[in-house]
């Protein structure tokens, strides 16, 4: 089966800065594929190249087998782009905004009206459709921003951080709409720096930083890279070699990251258990100020991969 989106060895260099450094991935039909990374990781630049706004320095983008370099207009017809900033005409109504974008893609007459009405209902703005957008709340504008990218019923939807700056309730509404889009058979490329969103929404995701994909897979596959079991985080006045030596003496205890005063260790499901592992560390003469036990998540994986937290 031909993937809906195929990205091959994509590079983008601005002078001395390499914004995207050879990323490759593919997204299948009906899939929600996440791009998880901090601000400045290269997510938006990648999206810009995929939708034809920026020419790549090197590499290739194929959408349903069509190359963006060879047939940009053909590819753009298949894409729905929802930018990170709320790009709507504030003085126009929600309906007028949607009619404009539908018109750009050649929709008109009854087909346009029906599509606009359907979308207004889908994003929950049908009762405010005639009102100028400037009167809307941030969440309503975000929903309209999303609807504007869907008006021509695209095959592939590129969502660039569509929930930035809105309250949790509005965010849940947008995530529900995105799930519905995928359930309707559309393919979604979703960039975010919110771990919870990525875990909740994405079928597969890539962790990206400094323009490179550091890890890719389903959420379960990515978590598994940290090992199966519980994640034990300890903090205290110890030195890194002391904790490493103590951990090495406990069977089934795998170090993830150890620095002076802080250590992250996985206690395997087939290992000694958390209490036994802690006993082993205490027996080595270590004292801790703080102990945390939890299931590993993507934040831990990002920390493991990059040495820093996602929101640094």
């Amino acid at each position: 089966m031909t993937p809906v989106l195929e990205v091959r060895d994509l590079h983008k260099v601005f002078g001395d800065l390499t914004a995207v450094d050879g990323i490759s991935f593919s997204v299948n039909e009906g899939e929600i594929y996440g791009f998880l990374g901090p601000n400045g990781a290269g997510k938006t630049t990648s999206i810009s190249m995929i939708c034809g706004l920026l020419p790549p320095t090197e590499g290739e983008v194929l959408v349903m087998g069509l190359s963006i370099a060879e047939d940009p207009r053909g590819v753009k017809r298949l894409l729905g782009v929802v930018p990170q900033e709320v790009a709507v005409y504030e003085e126009l109504s929600a309906r007028m905004n949607l009619e404009f974008w539908g018109g750009i893609y050649g929709l008109k007459g009854k087909a346009l009206r029906e599509r606009v009405n359907g979308l207004l209902a889908q994003v929950g703005l049908d009762d405010r459709a005639a009102e100028p957008v400037k009167n809307f709340s941030g969440g309503m504008k975000r929903r309209l921003n999303l609807a504007m990218g869907l008006v021509h019923d695209p095959q592939l939807i590129l969502l660039d951080e569509p929930t930035v700056g809105i309250d949790p309730q509005a965010r849940h509404k947008i995530l529900d709409i995105v799930k519905q889009i995928a359930a309707d058979g559309r393919t979604v490329l979703y960039t975010t720096h919110y771990l919870e969103e990525a875990e909740d929404l994405c079928d597969r995701l890539a962790i990206i930083d400094h323009g490179s994909i550091l890890a890719e897979g389903t959420v379960a596959e990515l978590k598994a890279k940290l090992g199966e079991g519980s994640l034990l985080t300890v903090q205290g006045g110890f030195k890194a070699p002391e904790l490493a030596a103590a951990a090495g003496a406990v069977a089934g205890l795998q170090p993830v990251e150890i620095i002076d005063g802080r250590g992250m260790l996985v206690v395997g499901r087939d290992g000694p258990g958390v209490s036994n592992a802690l006993s082993g560390l205490f027996q080595a003469g270590l004292a801790f100020d703080d102990i945390t036990i939890k299931e590993p998540n993507l934040e831990d994986l990002f920390l493991n991969l990059t040495g820093r937290e996602l929101r640094d």
């Binding site: 207009r73 053909g74 753009k76 750009i104 893609y105």
Partner: peptide, 14 residues
């Protein structure tokens, strides 16, 4: 400045 032009450029409209 409002991002609308960028958005229009992502459409098939030259």
């Amino acid at each position: 400045n409002s991002g609308m032009l960028r958005r229009q450029l992502a459409t098939p409209m030259p």
